[in-house]
Design a protein around this nucleic acid. Structure first.
Lengths: 268, 268
DNA sequence: CGACTAGTTGAGGCCAGTCAATGTTGGTGG
DNA sequence: CCACCAACATTGACTGGCCTCAACTAGTCG
């Protein structure tokens, strides 16, 4: 048995924005254990960025019910590998995960850098096998969402169906953005976009948008941006020299995001 | 009323007027008109690559019923533009379409090169607005699939639901492949992948996999592959010199696809 | 402390981009 | 049918941005 019900107040990391009370919300259960607080969509701080977005309390409980379990991953542990049979999506509760696609010759490309609230595994649906690898960049916890159950429930909950489609569609849109970046931007633009994109995502999660810690090495960032690690390192140094950012290893502070934005879309 | 039921053999050329059949029009024609032959999933030559894949006859009829209409596009005409409200997916019946994403500064990147049987517009679901432009590369005809109707029907037809999810997921997988290409491959590898990919897609559609006609200019191909048109042109010439392919403008013949495959994944 | 990984910085080379001239193709109208 | 024009394509010469190779530093862990 796991430890239970210590009388601790709520406290989930990012004190912040998400606090919606759907219509028809009755007063909550008489007693809520900390386990409840930790493991239900209803109380998850990411519910406004995750699959249950916009669902009623009752609907959310049904989504809750299909969450098979949560999985904890230590840094560098693999959630799934390319080629493995697909049976679930994963919602990141805590931590961050990189997904990498591999060519036959072993070359590897970081396709995505996912953080809490993100849902991954979508590329497995089409072939019933995962198309990429998912590796934890730090200690991470994910909700396991068995896909057949999601599909079942989506047939009775239009709101869930809609959310699922939106999540998948946004992934497509995101990928197209990466394609644009990789296909037509110069190195400094790529890094600027990367830094600004992270800022935006942290902001929407209630964290600072000007100061954050990268969870990837220079090499992984380079792989994600189609650059070599030396190039990434040089750019970090240059941006710092020019007063755009402040870098200390993986800690980044954006000093002039206006200038960063101006870099993007600038002809060499 | 449109002309009907002439005893003409199959012929699915681009003859005829817009051929609109509103969803409710269910005239249970005892005789199958040429119009029926032309416009129903049941008889569409692409049904095994399109949304109705694997559906029963009855289910397919229901999908048929939700096809609002077909749209014809002349070469270079736009099906939708980035930012326009999204309300439907499009299945390509005849022809081919490029989708392009644009950066704020006007830079443009060809994100996809779609041919008959492909379904496009998926990136609009997440934001209710199209995220890219779709432009016909030749005279083209598409089925218009209103998305709310698809969602409705998907809730009662699990097979359709499954297909929709697979279509979306495969788009994600495809995009990841493009990311790998753009992020880590050299110019000659990119073109080789492009040519082999087209061969494969034509093959699955019952066309020659060694001889086909490109529907894009060198510039569009370059944009798709993250290269400049001059580079694409030079590579075509070089591949021809080396006996890998034969090129005559946009007509391509693969002479040694084994060698093309060997190019891919080869260290410079 | 040594071994290892991650990161920084420099020197030089190469692949693809840029600029420019020329050739080819296809559509239009006389 | 042919002439013409514009769009498309090819090819060459040169440039430059990023990669490669390499040396060195800083922090970490057994």
């Amino acid at each position: 048995m796991a430890p239970i019900a210590k009388p601790v107040p709520i406290v989930l990391a990012p004190a912040g924005p998400p606090s919606v009370r759907p219509a028809g919300t009755a007063s909550p259960a008489p007693v809520i254990s900390i386990r409840d607080l930790k493991t239900h969509c209803l109380t998850c701080s990411m519910r406004e960025l995750c699959l249950p977005l916009g669902l009623t309390v009752d609907e959310m409980k049904q989504v809750d019910a299909l969450v098979a379990n949560r999985t904890k991953l230590k840094k560098n542990e693999t959630l799934y590998r390319a080629g493995e049979p697909f049976h679930a999506l994963y919602a990141i509760r805590i931590g961050s995960i990189k997904t990498t696609v591999l060519a036959e010759d072993g070359r590897e490309q970081v396709a995505g850098y996912h953080m809490l609230g993100d849902i991954i595994g979508l590329d497995g649906i089409g072939t019933d096998r995962h198309g990429c690898e998912a590796i934890a960049l730090e200690d991470t916890e994910v909700c396991v969402l068995p896909f057949v159950k999601i599909e079942d429930l989506a047939r009775t909950l239009p709101a869930l169906q809609r959310n699922l489609h939106q999540v998948m569609s946004r992934e497509i849109t995101r990928d197209q953005g990466v394609m644009l970046l990789l296909g037509s931007m110069r190195a400094e633009e790529r890094l600027a976009v990367f830094l600004l994109n992270l800022a935006d995502r942290y902001r929407r999660r209630g964290y600072s948008s000007t100061e954050y810690v990268l969870r990837m090495t220079r090499e992984e960032i380079g792989s994600h941006l189609g650059l070599k690690l030396e190039t990434v390192s040089r750019l970090f140094s240059r941006f710092q020299e020019e007063g755009l950012i402040q870098v200390q290893g993986r800690a980044v502070k954006l000093l002039d995001s206006g200038a960063l934005k101006r870099i993007v879309g600038q002809r060499g």
